[in-house]
Design a protein around this nucleic acid. Structure first.
Lengths: 160, 160
DNA sequence: TTCGGATCGTCCGGGTCCAGACGATCCGAA
DNA sequence: TTCGGATCGTCTGGACCCGGACGATCCGAA
């Protein structure tokens, strides 16, 4: 029950760390994920990694599992369980590369493509909702700054 | 060794999902966290939760563990292990509220304050680095949009 | 005072994650 | 051809996370 202290404790971390970039990034990502996870489970996907992998596969470009794990930033061992689940639901198939029988090429199936398309609609709606009332220029700026932050670290990492 | 395929596979997920808000939020948060985790470990903290808790305690406002767990968005059971670790390193102490012996009031110690201050410098440097070259107005816009996204969902949640 | 329900911090069980080890396979050198 | 090192996907051990249950404590009603 929240009848005792309805809003006193509800001050989210934004109230405590109003200007901390990292905190805000986390909180915002969390909020979006929560909303999308809800949509994802409704159509049989498990969590953010499922549709993340599906999204990466949706462009049809062949990738090995290792490449895929790097692209979506999921540990290769964890990726196995994701692919196992998706394959069980017949959303992807793993085919062996005839040129190199060590590697598996996960591919999205027509069913998988359909599920992902349906999910993409929900995703776009959620993102549009989150940015409701923000004009186009500001949205573009937000996205570009985020992309800049996301990419920046590659330089600092490779300097080791 | 990255001598074989140095940059071919390095195209991060921004290249795959250039316009997806949620993805970018995740990636950006991840990058910042990676950088800050590095700084945190160097001064004896464990991961993002440690300095998150420390940051919340640094304002000196007394909070119960339950309140604290809500503020920093950490499960109350997980918070216990965080506090155990911080207390072992003498960065915080748990004192019993004399008015209600059920509750514990975690408080930051002078040592903890010192460690956090040191970390805060590294954090500010990392964030300044991430936004290097972005003018003040754009930074403010970024922060406000992130805060907006982070807070937005409370409304949609409480509507249930 | 006594007592039942509510709330605090903590503990336990099942599930998940990831570093490291492993077999299978490729490829270049001899 | 043969062989040693490198790389692929998979498996496994130990650590972590969190929902639910627990004892301790508070507080209002009788």
């Amino acid at each position: 029950m929240r009848s005792n202290e309805p809003d006193a404790t509800e001050l989210a971390l934004c109230a405590v760390f109003p200007t901390d970039l990292t905190m805000l990034l986390h909180a915002a990502a969390e909020r979006m994920t929560d909303e999308l996870d809800l949509a994802a489970v409704q159509m049989g996907l498990n969590d953010v990694r499922d549709w993340l992998v599906l999204a990466a596969l949706d462009d049809g470009r062949p990738r090995t599992q290792l490449e895929l794990s790097r692209v979506v930033c999921v540990d290769k061992t964890t990726l196995i369980s994701v692919l196992d689940r998706l394959e069980k639901h017949e959303l992807v198939v793993r085919s062996v590369d005839p040129a190199d029988r060590r590697v598996r090429i996960p591919q999205i199936t027509p069913t998988g493509r359909k599920v992902y398309a349906k999910f993409a609609i929900a995703r776009d709606a959620a993102e549009a909702h989150a940015l409701d009332g923000v004009d186009q220029a500001d949205r573009a700026l937000l996205l570009s700054l985020l992309a800049r932050i996301a990419d920046r670290q590659e330089a600092t990492l490779s300097s080791t």
